[in-house]
């Protein structure tokens, strides 16, 4: 598949990719059944030091992951990044990286002991969960490819629910859509490059 803007070949590594950034002209390309559609110019993310690099395979707990894309969210004076990883069985994983805090999660469909994530307050227990963080960030851009489209500039809301022992559930609620992710906190020292 080629970029509708510059004609260069698009590097697509994931079967269900919906959004991809052209490496040559930095255009944002939306992929649908009808083909590739230019939806605008991707905002260039400022280069920041990171343990994870696009298309450089990593291992976490002896499992391999390939970073295919990332979304950057700004909060306060800083930012955090959500890395889209392809797992060994072509599964979708998300690695949240926030200044040394790493969480590896996978989308899930579990029922939670509250009606809406909007009522959750930090420090309160909800069933077996302890609410540890309620926050928001503004989407400032992306790189690589993503399994869904994003709205740059849109505010993204989330809550963190701890199950203890490093187990975490993240609920994202943007535009009335709730997405639940389940995973674990990761010690960054355990993240290794496959080819290092």
């Amino acid at each position: 598949m080629n970029c509708p803007q510059c004609g260069d070949a698009l590097d697509i590594y994931f079967k269900w990719t919906k959004l991809v950034e052209c490496r040559s002209c930095k255009s944002s390309i939306f992929l649908s059944d009808e083909g590739a559609k230019l939806i605008g110019k991707a905002s260039t993310l400022s280069p920041e030091p990171s343990l994870i690099k696009l298309h450089e395979a990593i291992t976490i707990d002896n499992k391999n992951y390939l970073p295919l894309g990332k979304i950057r969210y700004a909060y306060g004076r800083g930012f955090w990044e959500e890395w889209f990883l392809k797992g060994e069985s072509n599964q979708e994983f998300w690695l949240s990286v926030d200044e040394g805090d790493f969480v590896l999660e996978k989308r899930t469909e579990i029922s939670l002991p509250f009606k809406s994530p909007r009522v959750v307050r930090v420090g309160r227990r909800y069933g077996s969960y302890l609410a540890t963080e309620v926050g928001e960030g503004r989407c400032v851009g992306f790189e690589g490819e993503l399994p869904f489209s994003i709205n740059i500039g849109k505010t993204h809301h989330y809550i963190h629910l701890s199950k203890g022992g490093g187990n975490l559930v993240t609920v994202e609620f943007t535009d009335g859509v709730d997405k639940i992710f389940q995973g674990k906190w990761i010690d960054p020292l355990t993240i290794k490059s496959v080819y290092s």
């Binding site: 920041e48 030091p49 343990l51 926030d98 200044e99 040394g100 960054p188 020292l189």
Partner: peptide, 17 residues
């Protein structure tokens, strides 16, 4: 009150605080 200590905050761009 004789027990005193100082915490120094360390920062690494890759590994945080």
């Amino acid at each position: 009150v004789e027990s005193t200590w100082s915490d120094f905050l360390l920062f690494s761009p890759l590994y945080g605080y």
